[in-house]
């Protein structure tokens, strides 16, 4: 609805028809400097972790289930509902791929910026981790490999949780 309104407003103002030409299904975002450093973690070395996650197809399944579960979770769905899930799925897949050393470039914003004013609490952060664990279980990723990956994500709590 909001998207439609923005697009209508943009059209009325005579702005370009497509606000995000690179990713036509996504909403426009304010300009920022893309960098792999924005991913918030150093990638693993070698291809062990990428293989453990079954490559891009596995990462895609994990991220999609993670987002699906989060949208169904009454604890955190409101945080997600107000945002562009198309963009979130894409940038999360890039971020996971980058950290797992799958050869991707992360094009999203840094962790502090993307979580700004979302009001994320530790409970929300942990709820997301629980969904990620379920998604990784379903992908049959070994528990120790899951933890190696979670160890990369855990410090992001400092930027994601702001109250």
């Amino acid at each position: 609805m909001l998207t439609a309104l923005i697009m209508v407003a943009a059209l009325a103002a005579g702005a370009p028809e497509n606000p995000n030409p690179q990713h036509p299904n996504e909403e426009a975002v304010d300009p920022y400097a893309p960098s792999n450093a924005n991913a918030g973690a150093k990638p693993f070395e070698g291809d062990t972790m990428w293989k453990a996650f079954h490559g891009q197809a596995g990462v895609d399944r994990v991220v999609d289930e993670l987002v699906d579960l989060s949208l169904k979770d009454p604890r955190i769905k409101e945080i997600f509902e107000a945002h562009d899930m198309v963009r979130l799925r894409r940038t999360l897949k890039e971020q996971f791929c980058y950290i797992l050393n799958g050869g991707c470039t992360y094009s999203g914003r840094d962790m502090k910026s993307v979580h700004k004013d979302l009001g994320v609490q530790n409970t929300d952060f942990n709820a997301l981790v629980e969904h990620l664990q379920i998604a990784m279980d379903h992908e049959k990723i070994g528990f120790r490999d899951q933890n190696r990956f979670l160890a990369k994500l855990a410090p992001m709590q400092r930027h994601a949780v702001e109250r």
Partner: peptide, 8 residues
């Protein structure tokens, strides 16, 4: 400190 989050 935090036993869980501060993995770096």
């Amino acid at each position: 400190g935090d036993a869980v989050y501060n993995q770096d």
